[in-house]
Design a protein around this nucleic acid. Structure first.
Lengths: 205, 205
DNA sequence: TACAAAAGAGACCTAATAGTCTGTTTAACT
DNA sequence: AGTTAAACAGACTATTAGGTCTCTTTTGTA
């Protein structure tokens, strides 16, 4: 087996387990030993591959979390269809996984931001960078929708993007509470209601 | 000075400082000694008044946080005026404090939920109880608005409440990032847009 | 096979932290 | 003033956690 490949495989295993535990128990509440125990690995292995626990987290953010956000929230809204439909379906799917996962701990980005805000600006930068990427892609999709005649030309795309991100982050927090399925249903209905108010109506043409 | 009053005063001081530090640095990242150092008090004082750090947090939640949510998010929406106006002003004010506070760490309820979800069901119950109180009051205000002819009768009040809570929790997270003032402005504009879609329109009478 | 570097094991160190315990001070009450 | 209990001080303990260091094993290569 190639050196580099083995190295990558081990690092990947560690990061996957690390993310899982950080998601479940939080960063400060998960020890390096917890992760290593789960993998039957030792301290030596961990500090051979990563400089520190913080370095480990940052790599998880820049690799795993970025990819998840891309595949779950960004790629689904790319395309030439009505962005309001694309976003509706995208949110629907993203929330559905939360409904079916009895062990749901919310939106990982929100959890980490809540844990690191004001404490660690380095980690925060990596987290907010992902939010920025999401925001930029939302705005782009909405503007394209405006150009293609799906969205009213008076609509403020930045504003809609902010509102969408807010509501998504918030509903993920609420869904960790009780009756996530009912919460999702109500949320999606109101999202559609909101979208109806910004779509290009025939009488406005 | 009366015994009981002195006791209450000291406990109050501890709780106020405790909440401040938990808000700034998070619960797990704040030690009991940190709080005591800030107050020039000793371990003996702390454990004389509180059973444990967790007991201390729960008392903070049930006293200080509950009151803040009441005064900031619940009392302002009580009354017989148009609830959509009341809620708009309420959110505007609640977000304004975040704008002017350079050291903003988001919505305390969201931060704590993110930190305790899946880890400590006792603490979680106290947190989600507050969310429930908020939700009930929102629904009541909206239903009253329906009855008084401010809101369209087809509107699902539970759904609107969920959507409002979600967006508020989310925008508070986003406002900790960059340009909170611009974020707030955009958010409020979209909130009004959304409200226009559920208000009782003259042609619907 | 021989060798060198990569990968990993695990004992150990140090700092921090929740909680305990004993002793001292303060304040209320007779 | 004297007594008693509340209120507090602060040293101490047990445990945990991040990180280091040395030694061993595995693996690619000549």
């Amino acid at each position: 087996m190639n050196n580099s490949i083995k190295r990558m495989a081990t690092m990947q295993r560690m990061q996957v387990t690390g993310l899982e535990l950080f998601y479940k128990k939080g960063y400060y509440n998960t020890s390096v030993d917890d992760i290593l125990k789960e993998l039957s690995l030792s301290k030596g292995a961990f500090y051979y591959h990563f400089d520190s626990k913080e370095d480990f987290l940052i790599q998880i953010i820049d690799n795993l979390i970025v990819r998840r956000v891309y595949s779950m929230l960004i790629e689904p809204i790319e395309g030439h269809d009505n962005p309001l439909d694309l976003i509706t379906n995208c949110f629907d799917n993203a929330l559905e996984t939360a409904v079916h996962n009895e062990m749901d701990y919310g939106f990982i980005l929100n959890n980490l931001i809540a844990e690191f805000n004001g404490k660690n600006s380095t980690v925060m930068k990596h987290l907010t960078d992902i939010l920025k990427i999401w925001e930029v892609n939302l705005v782009t999709a909405l503007q394209k929708g405006k150009f293609n005649g799906f969205i009213d030309r008076h609509v403020d795309c930045e504003g809609v993007a902010t509102y969408l991100m807010s509501s998504f982050i918030g509903i993920r927090t609420l869904m960790t509470d009780v009756a996530p399925s009912a919460r999702k249903y109500r949320f999606m209905a109101q999202l559609r209601q909101y979208f109806k108010s910004i779509e290009l109506k025939p009488e406005n043409v």
